[in-house]
Each structure stands twice: as C-alpha cells, then as structure tokens.
Amino acid sequence: MPPAIQVDDVTKRFGSFTAVDRVDLTVEQGEVFGFLGHNGAGKSTMINMLLDFIRPSAGTIEVFGNNCQANGVEARERMGVLPEGYGMYDGLTGRQHVQYAMESKGVDGDPLDMLDRVGITDAADRAADGYSKGMAQRLVFAMALLGEPDLLILDEPTSGLDPAGARAMRETIITENERGATVFFSSHILEQIEAVADRVGIMHHGQLVAVDTIDGLRDMAGGETKLLITVDNFTDADVDGIAAIEGVEQAEIGDDGRLSVTCSKETKMDVLLALNRRDIDVLDLQTTEPSLEDLFVEYTRRS
C-alpha cells in the first residue's frame, strides 16, 4: 500500500528565494495530517507542487504512487482539493460550479445535494462571483468532496469561515476521514489542527522543522506544569521547603502574592500535600499546561 503522500527531498526556488527547502514527508493512508506554519512559511508552495501548479526545483512528490508532475492527472483523480487563491467563474451560479466539477470528475447526481452538505443551498442559483469569502470557501469545499476522493487536500480550509462554519468543516473532515479518506490540510491556526489532526508537520522558512503526533509534540514541549496557588499565609521558609521537593523546578511568590510553582506533571500532588502538611490552606488553585502554541512559537522563533 503506497503512502497517500510521499515527498522526497523536495526543494523549490523562485530565483534566489528558497520557498521550500529539502523537505521529506510521508503521509500514510487514513491519516489526518495537519500542516502548520505562518503565512509565507512554504505551506502553499508545497501544496501547489502536489497539484502540479508549480514544479519542484529538485526532488519528487508522489500521491498514491503517482508522480505529481509526470502523472498529475492520475494523481489528481484520487484527490479532492480546496486550493488557495482560486476565483469563481464570472456569472456562473453555485449550482453550475458544482455541475462543472461533476462533469470534470465524471460524477453523476444532483448538485444541490452537495450544496446542501456544506449549507449553501439557498445560494445555489446566485452567481458565485458575488459570494462572500466564507460561502465561496464552502462551495469549493463541496466541489472537493465530490466523488468521494481518497485524499482531501485543503489549503487553509477555514479561512473566511465564521466559528460555526469552521466547526462544521472540522466535523466534515472527521466524517470524511471515517469514510476512509486521507486528509492533508494546512493552517496557520494551531487550534484547528489540534482539533482534528492525527499528526502535525510544522513548516518554517521553507523547512519542515517538526513532524509528530499532537501528544508527541506536547511531550516535546516539556512536561512542565505551572501551579498558581492562593494560600492564606506562608513564610519564606515554606517557599524554600516547596522548592526543595523533588521534581519542583522553581517556587516563588508572584507579584500578585500567589505562590507560583513550576514542576513536572507528576509532582503536582506532592506540592499540595506538602502545603497541607505545613498547615497552609489552599484557597484557590490554577494550573497551566504547556501549550502547543508555546512549542510552535519556540520552533518558529529559532533561526
């Protein structure tokens, strides 16, 4: 079983600018893969090479074993695509756009069913060049879903969508994945990727700086937890005592008068028990887990 996407040592240069720099990536069939990075990190360049809009300066890209450049049509026969930077055909309605996609992919059926699925049935007979960004995004998503593709390629799928629309799209992504589709989608918003992706790749300055599961990335971010504890009374000796507990990295009194403890996840209870032993009442407790956001920021701050 060939991987859904196989990228081997791919580089894309535009003149002296290197947009994608020696990227290796394998996306297995059945995965939901999130492609994370700031705008301009090289995500769309990578996707545009998958679609053969642009050609790699070096390296090869395959989709289900079909070379995306030499056998682009075969590769795209397995894909449903929500690309970036698309426009609508002047004067054609939403229904006619879906009809065009059906004819192009050789799919029979009623265009309205697809429009229904993305919730723009009411706009079916309006010219699509007058659609809002969110409606256009739904329309092209509907065109991408046609014919039950084995691989969905979605470039910033939730851009222009309101929160409800973004949630509906995430749900559709999950449904499609349960049907058996591999999903590859890019975003610069971490939460959206976190919500649905099995694995995440982080692009930065054209390089793929990390590929891992969400949990793996979280572990990499460090197991550090921060406790903010409001206590009734305590002394400096108590603070030193807490700091002395094994697994506690730092304990101090914050500006707000709260006790701030940085420790490993497993040590949380030890800290609370120690406070209890010292007859210090805990009035309030707040914990902050390390977020992927922190990791993302850390990865993209380097270089």
């Binding site: 679609l51 053969d52 809009f53 682009g72 049509v73 075969e74 795209r76 026969e77 894909m79 695509v81 690309p83 970036e84 930077g85 698309y86 426009g87 609508m88 055909y89 002047d90 756009h97 996609a101 192009s104 992919k105 092209v140 065109m143 390629i153």
Partner: peptide, 17 residues
C-alpha cells in the same frame, strides 16, 4: 489571473485538456 485556472487544474484536468 482570475484564479479559475486553479479550480480547473486542481481537478483531474491536464493543461493540454
């Protein structure tokens, strides 16, 4: 220039087609 080529060529169409 309008971006409709992106729609067309992201489907299984070749440039010759």
């Amino acid at each position: 220039e309008s971006g409709t080529a992106v729609l067309t060529l992201s489907m299984p169409h070749s440039r010759a087609g």
